[in-house]
C-alpha cells in the first residue's frame, strides 16, 4: 500500500515538472508582429466600418431625427419642438456612433461588429503598411485608420452637424407643405 503511494506521488511530480517546462518554453516565445498585409487587411476592414458609420451618421441624423421622434412628442415636452427633436436625436446618434466605432475597440477590444478585425490590429497603429487613409487618402494617407481617431471624431461630428442642419432645412420645407401654415390659405376661414 505504502509502495503504491510513493510511485504515484513520483509520477505526479514528473508530470507537473513536464507541464511547467512546456509552459515556460511557450511563454518565453515572442509572438511575431502582424505582417504588413495583415495590417492592411484589418485596416481596410476597419476603414469600411468607419465609412459605413460616417454615412450612417449623415443619414441617421438627417432622417431619423426628422421622422422618428414626432411620436416622442406625444410623451415628452422637449420632443414637441422640431428643432430640439433634431438636436437631441443627432446628439444621441453622434454619441452612439462615436462610442461604437472609436471608443469601443480601445476599451473592449475587437469582436462583435468588428468580426473581421484581429485584436492584434492595435499593434499596426505604429507600423507602416501603406494604409489607404480616411476619405480615400485625403486625410492621413499611409497612417493606420485606428491611429487617426481625432480626425475620425471630427469627421463624425461634421457629418452629424451637416445631417442636423439638413434635417432642419427639410423640416422647414415639409412644414410649409404639410404643417399648419399649409392650411392657411388667406381668405378661406
Amino acid at each position: 500500500m505504502g509502495n503504491f503511494s510513493n510511485q504515484s506521488l513520483k509520477r505526479t511530480l514528473k508530470l507537473f515538472v513536464l507541464i511547467v517546462f512546456v509552459n515556460i518554453e511557450a511563454w518565453g516565445q515572442v509572438p511575431s508582429p502582424p505582417s504588413a498585409s495583415q495590417c492592411r487587411q484589418w485596416d481596410e476592414a476597419y476603414l469600411a466600418l468607419f465609412r459605413t458609420a460616417l454615412w450612417g451618421m449623415l443619414i441617421g441624423s438627417s432622417l431619423v431625427s426628422l421622422f422618428v421622434p414626432p411620436l416622442l412628442g406625444k410623451q415628452w415636452w422637449w420632443a414637441t419642438s422640431p428643432r430640439l427633436r433634431i438636436l437631441w436625436t443627432t446628439l444621441a446618434i453622434w454619441l452612439l456612433v462615436l462610442f461604437g466605432i472609436v471608443l469601443w475597440p480601445r476599451l473592449f477590444g475587437f469582436g462583435l461588429w468588428f468580426s473581421g478585425i484581429d485584436p492584434r490590429y492595435l499593434e499596426c497603429e505604429t507600423s507602416s503598411f501603406g494604409a489607404t487613409g480616411l476619405l480615400d487618402g485625403l486625410i492621413g494617407s499611409g497612417v493606420a485608420t485606428i491611429a487617426q481617431w481625432p480626425a475620425m471624431v471630427i469627421l463624425l461630428s461634421a457629418a452629424a452637424f451637416i445631417g442636423g442642419i439638413a434635417a432642419c432645412g427639410v423640416s422647414v420645407i415639409l412644414n410649409r407643405y404639410l404643417g399648419i401654415p399649409a392650411r392657411v390659405k388667406g381668405g378661406e376661414a
Partner: peptide, 21 residues
Amino acid sequence: KMTRDPFAQIVWGRGIVHTLA
C-alpha cells in the same frame, strides 16, 4: 411650436391643429 412642426397633427392631434389654422 406646433406651427413650426410639419408633424403637428401627429404630436398634437387634429382638433387643435384645425382650430389654430
